[in-house]
Amino acid sequence: MNEFKQSVCALLILILANCYLNSLYAANPPAEPETVKKIKQVAIQVLATNPPQLFVAVSGEVPSGGFTDVTLTRVSYSKPPEDGIQDYYLKALPPTQPAIAVISEVKARDRWIGMPSWVKGIRVHGVEEGVKEKLFKDVQQRARPRVRRFKGISNSGSYDEAIKAALAKLNKALADDGVRDATATWKVSSVQGEVGGITGLNQLSVIIIANRQPAWKTQPDSAKTPPTAEQKQEKSE
């Protein structure tokens, strides 16, 4: 009987303790990160690596000290935005206890490995002095994705046969630079045919241009280097 009473008492103590903790939690809910009101400075750097990388550094102002867990959050999209601008939010956890009432600075960084080719710049959101935008065209030594051309030929005048031959070359080039599981966007650049002659020539050629994701090896816009042997070969394909 005594053991039963002890068990009941222990259970009641646990229930009361749990109710007390729940009341404390309800009275003082955990703080949520909030968007920094003022964005002071945004710096970006585009690295022409394979895959391309984007470094973003942002600083902002908060109304007091004590802000912690500062993060720079990249927005996810179901489809790329039409303007090609990637949105970011600078957020920080406000103080839960009295803090010094002095305007303070918070900073955060983001490194984006495998930045897609549609990104033309970034936009960092605050609240009051809300938005700062940086375009890649304003950044020196910006690297552009390398576009390659592939030529397919049909000696029977078949467009389907020529386009398949060009795509076969593109599919083979997807694995260049040791890249696996690459994809590419392509479009037809030109179609040309040649017929006649004693042999009854009926040749059709198709040239496609392609852009791989991740990009093939890139070259800065400002670089003025002569074409390599590989590039000359691509032009002749």
Rank of each mutant, 00 (worst) to 15 (best):
A168G: 12
Y89Q: 08
Q213E: 15
Q41H: 12
V179S: 05
S117C: 00
K172W: 10
P81F: 03
E237V: 03
K37V: 02
W216H: 09
G114E: 11
L16T: 12
G66S: 04
Q219D: 14
G126I: 00
G114Y: 10
V147M: 08
V75Y: 01
Y25W: 13
I163V: 15
P116N: 03
V131C: 00
I39P: 02
L12M: 13
D110L: 04
E237S: 15
D181Q: 11
P226V: 13
V119R: 00
Q86L: 15
E105S: 08
G65L: 04
I85W: 01
C9F: 05
I208Y: 12
K91V: 15
N211T: 13
G60C: 04
G84K: 00
E194T: 10
K91H: 03
P33V: 02
V42D: 01
M115F: 00
S104I: 01
G196F: 13
R146S: 10
A184T: 12
G200R: 04
K169P: 11
R109K: 02
V147I: 14
I122P: 00
V191C: 03
S117N: 10
E105L: 12
V106A: 02
R144D: 10
W186D: 06
R212E: 07
F67L: 07
G121M: 03
A17S: 14
K5F: 14
A175R: 05
V206T: 06
Q141H: 07
S156Q: 14
P116F: 14
T73E: 14
Y89R: 08
E133C: 00
M1T: 13
A92L: 08
T96E: 15
G196D: 11
D160G: 08
A166Y: 10
V124F: 05
I207D: 01
R144V: 09
V206C: 07
A184D: 12
M1Q: 12
G84R: 00
L12G: 04
Q97H: 09
A223I: 09
L47E: 13
I207Y: 01
I100E: 10
K172L: 14
T68I: 07
E128C: 00
N155R: 10
